[in-house]
Design a protein around this nucleic acid. Structure first.
Lengths: 210, 210
DNA sequence: TTGAATACATATCGCTGTTATGTGATCATC
DNA sequence: GATGATCACATAACAGCGATATGTATTCAA
């Protein structure tokens, strides 16, 4: 009846089902028995193809980071690195607010040991800041300072998503908080105020066009 | 043998045991059976005195916010509201880094429905900013803007704690990231640069004295 | 002294992730 | 082509979870 050589498609099937359940009902609904029912297989499929629930969640997180990276990629790499950094931030916050359960699983519920998938999201900010420096928009500073600035940008992105998801701040304020903050950061890092404001405008125009 | 009128001390006993287990081993170790073993009672004690695990966690979170508020209170209310806001931020980050499991339970693992305990932490920032306005350090702005600024301050505090706890940023950078960021924020809000820098210095001196 | 109230221990239920066991299909080798 | 090892899979089971039902023992009011 069923194939007796491991079918890679089943792994994909399980992960997709897991992503769907997680997105729609949250992490509490993501159980082996639920996955078995959803894919019309036994709970053993999870262990044969993934090795356990931990790996299922890891795979879903990884998938989520790929989607986030794609969203940020789609936000664009223009000739204005500052506008790109702003657009990427907007895309990040949008992603978090549009996929609350997935975002929580990716960023919040992540186990303490460093998750390879999440590193790229931080590196993206460092790279974005480096582009701003290379373009002369922000003065050259030592690497440690770039990391510190990246941490500040990430804190802002994540903080806004957290506050809206927790209900402390209304969603309609989210973009204002973000843009206001990013503007302050960039001017503080040395970007010219007028140029920064134009980049914000360009980035928001682009975001609305998506 | 045992008293048959409900003893309020048992409630306290359970919550203290819960706080201890949570702080030392994390939320996964906080189970009814563990609490029963820890307090040398049956699992029913949790239901008789607290009503269930949800209430246990709520009580521990509440206890945590009281401790956090006390830490911030201890950071001081001086004649310099800007320095106070900075000192409060430092105390917040210190608390989060010193009590990682408790901090997670309080801020991260909190159920989606608004938790009364957490509101005070946000209000503290709003009040702090109001004091800065009343003192003339920051220009008068409409309430919505104050809320937005408070969200930015909170994002920064929480973001730094998150990054250090996740390992993305080294703990020795935490204070630099925080102070650098707070300084930018305050100057952006309209505080005088020289005054802001002095307030940062005063606040850090105070923090080191604790 | 009696009877209602109630704190508590014990046992159980339905759920979880995980593992052990049995079975049947596949594939390499002779 | 037959044979035997391999392996995916279903079934069943296990330990642990939160929560609950039940029986008991004690306390307090009448």
């Amino acid at each position: 009846m069923s194939p007796q050589r491991r079918d890679p498609a089943v792994r994909v099937l399980l992960i997709e089902a897991a992503a769907k359940v997680l997105a729609e009902e949250g992490v509490a609904a993501l159980t082996t028995r639920r996955l078995a029912r959803e894919t019309e297989r036994s709970t053993m499929a999870v262990y044969t193809h993934l090795g356990g629930m931990e790996e299922v969640q890891r795979a879903v997180r990884e998938e989520g980071f790929l989607r986030l990276a794609a969203d940020i990629e789609r936000a664009g790499q223009t000739s204005d690195p500052v506008a790109d950094l702003i657009a990427a931030s907007t895309a990040y916050v949008r992603f978090g607010l549009a996929n609350p359960h997935l975002y929580r699983a990716m960023v919040v519920d992540r186990p303490v040991e460093q998750d390879d998938a999440g590193v790229g999201a931080f590196e993206e900010i460092v790279t974005g800041l480096r582009r701003c420096i290379d373009d002369g928009r922000i003065p050259e500073v030592e690497h440690t300072m770039v990391v510190i600035w990246a941490a500040q940008v990430w804190s802002m992105r994540h903080g806004i998503v957290s506050m809206v998801l927790s209900g402390a701040v209304a969603e309609e304020h989210a973009h204002h908080v973000l843009l206001d903050m990013i503007l302050r950061l960039l001017i503080g890092y040395g970007d010219d105020g007028t140029a920064a404001r134009r980049s914000v405008r360009d980035a928001t125009d682009r975001a609305e066009a998506v």
